[in-house]
């Protein structure tokens, strides 16, 4: 990677409000790797919640705002696979559908794990995280950003998240049965179809817990938030941590 490259940090709205530690870990980790990171403070949301609910039009002003704020950066990096996937996959076609200019973000936005793995090509992370973790392969991370090979496809197996975790001292990595089945979050699905959503979350958690892991980790805090809500309600013995927090542990 070009060391003069300027990185714009994209901190999705719910990470900003609920999981600031994930944003902080992302910043510290990139900084520690000698990368020039900036955070445009006026950023808000990528527009995914309303678009997935059926109101793409309402996300249009947010897409414009996103483009204006991140226009000058060489890369945009964010710790949320689903939000990054939305910018990458959906911003271009929403803009096109409304007869607007070509989307510049799609080619330069990366989920942080993808960025560390593919662009920075990190060889070792400092410090250690001596714990057992179960990797949560989130749908948009797997099937839109290709962070790992989807279980449905018969292509060579890989996992960028597992690759990265193997570069951190002490981490013991597991994966649940039904390795990339959806946890049932799905944005407004979680509220609209709450019965199915909660059942899916419970089933997913049972599979994570069965690995013997102490933590569920993944590249999407939204899935983790949903499962955490169920784990707290059901008093299940498992904790939740974003991949980037593990990689930044000790910084």
């Amino acid at each position: 990677m070009d060391h003069l490259a300027k990185i714009g940090l994209f901190i999705p709205c719910y990470v900003n409000a609920v999981f600031p530690e994930v944003g902080i870990a992302t910043y510290k980790l990139l900084k520690q790797l000698g990368i020039d990171v900036d955070y445009p403070v006026d950023q808000t949301c990528c527009g995914q919640p309303m678009a997935n609910a059926g109101f793409e039009g309402k996300s249009l002003p947010l897409i414009h705002k996103f483009n204006d704020l991140f226009d000058t950066y060489d890369y945009v990096v964010g710790p949320s696979a689903s939000c990054v996937a939305f910018v990458k996959e959906n911003h271009p076609h929403i803009l096109a559908a409304h007869g607007q200019h070509q989307c510049q973000m799609s080619g330069k936005i990366y989920e942080v794990c993808e960025f560390l793995h593919d662009i920075v090509k990190v060889e070792k992370f400092p410090g250690a995280f001596p714990h057992k973790v179960s990797v949560h392969n989130s749908c948009h991370g797997v099937r839109e950003l290709h962070l790992s090979s989807p279980s449905e496809l018969h292509t060579p197996r890989y996992s960028k998240i597992k690759d990265l975790l193997s570069l951190k001292e002490g981490v013991e990595v597991f994966e649940p049965q039904r390795v990339d089945e959806c946890c049932g979050f799905g944005g407004m699905f979680a509220i609209e179809e709450d019965a199915v959503s909660v059942q899916m979350g419970k089933d997913k958690l049972r599979n994570h817990i069965a690995t013997g892991a102490e933590y569920v980790t993944g590249a999407d805090s939204s899935c983790l938030m949903h499962m955490q809500g169920i784990a707290r309600r059901e008093k299940l013995p498992i904790q939740f941590i974003h991949v980037v927090e593990i990689l930044a542990a000790g910084l």
Binding site: C139, H140, P150, D180
Partner: peptide, 11 residues
């Protein structure tokens, strides 16, 4: 409403 947009069906 019966879809989380997990895209497993596509695959």
């Amino acid at each position: 409403s019966a879809c989380t947009l997990c895209f497993s069906c596509n695959s």
